[in-house]
Nucleic acid binder design. Structure first.
Lengths: 204, 204
DNA sequence: CCTACCGATCGGTAGG
DNA sequence: CCTACCGATCGGTAGG
């Protein structure tokens, strides 16, 4: 009997169930990122876990709910980046943002890919919630940039477009980054940080 | 009888067929860009042209061939950008690239969206052909950047990553740009050009 | 978590 | 370009 067995039964069940759902989300995330949401069948997800197709519905409500969970998790990991920014000047804070954002893209590549590609396929109560998180994140970067302009360290004509520009440059990494390659998230941050600062007029 | 009626019959038929295929590609491009390739049925494409589902196969070989034609067209419009770059210094040439690239994204938004999102779903003879075009395009931008470094107008640590950075920033426009908005392709180019030059160390 | 099934829809084809 | 159809597969459910 391991220590786990002393947990109250209810929590034990909840815990085991959480592990199973985690497995489902990871398997689905990988498949969704490779083939897309619509091209991935519920049966294909189940096969990865050695289950029968219908058995997944003992754990999930619908295929769309699985997509939502994946997309929401990715959105929250991005949100955590702006919540954990260090105090300091705009240059340091923007660089920390760049490094943190790239870390999420690179370390959660399947989730990030699904977040970028498939969120539009969510239907309405779900989609609005994700749009909210996306907009808040972009607004946070825009404010970082505006703070730098006020400090006099950035020169930017249109902070809104500049934020979209930077996010695009960072997000696009998901298109070509492959985990086993020559480049880790740290090196990537080291190269991308001066590119971003340069774009913002902060002299690389 | 219009002038067209004097065309030799064969050419007339070929001409009319081309028009029909154009309509199919446009309808399919719009639907693919909105819902994705796998979520768009052949019947949905046919419905846009007031045809029955099976009737499309009088014009096309397969659904995948339609996807390929769309993706290849987009790739060729991008390729035309680097082929028509003006002579001059690296700054001017990069700016022309930025403007030209954004024009394609904005003016061919559905095709560009499908190009970015759905090309990976092509099967092998098709996919290799597209990968070729993508790689050549990225290599061309990389060489533009390297030329600027040699001229002494850019300061860039890693031209390959810099090219990926710039392409990401430009491509991402497809994610938020909406045709009826406040922003035309010219204004977009005017704002993005200094951002790119700044990123490359060319002092915005 | 499995077996067995539901109605719906898919890409594509034959024959006209 | 239409009608009518093919086998395959889809998301999801009932009953256990």
């Amino acid at each position: 009997m391991s220590g786990v067995a002393f947990l109250p039964n209810e929590r034990l069940l909840a815990w085991r169930e959480m592990g199973r759902i985690e497995e489902i989300l990871n398997a689905a995330g990988k498949l969704f990122s490779e083939r897309g949401y619509h091209a991935t069948s519920v049966r294909a997800i189940a096969r990865q876990l050695d289950l029968q197709g219908g058995s997944l519905y003992a754990h999930i409500e619908s295929k769309e709910e699985v997509l939502f969970q994946i997309v929401e998790r990715a959105a929250k990991r991005f949100a955590a980046v702006v919540e954990n920014l260090p105090e300091g000047g705009a240059r340091e804070r923007v660089c920390a943002f760049v490094r943190g954002h790239l870390r999420v893209v690179v370390e959660e590549l399947p989730y990030a890919t699904v977040f970028f590609h498939e969120w539009k396929f969510l239907s309405e109560p779900y989609k609005a919630r994700i749009r909210e998180l996306r907009d808040a994140y972009e607004a946070a970067l825009k404010e970082l940039i505006e703070a730098g302009v006020r400090e006099g360290v950035f020169r930017v004509e249109d902070p809104d477009l500049a934020a979209k520009f930077v996010l695009g440059a960072l997000n696009w990494v998901y298109q070509w980054y492959r985990p086993g390659g020559r480049l880790g998230p740290e090196e990537l941050g080291r190269v991308f940080c001066p590119l971003v600062l340069g774009a913002l007029g902060g002299e690389g």
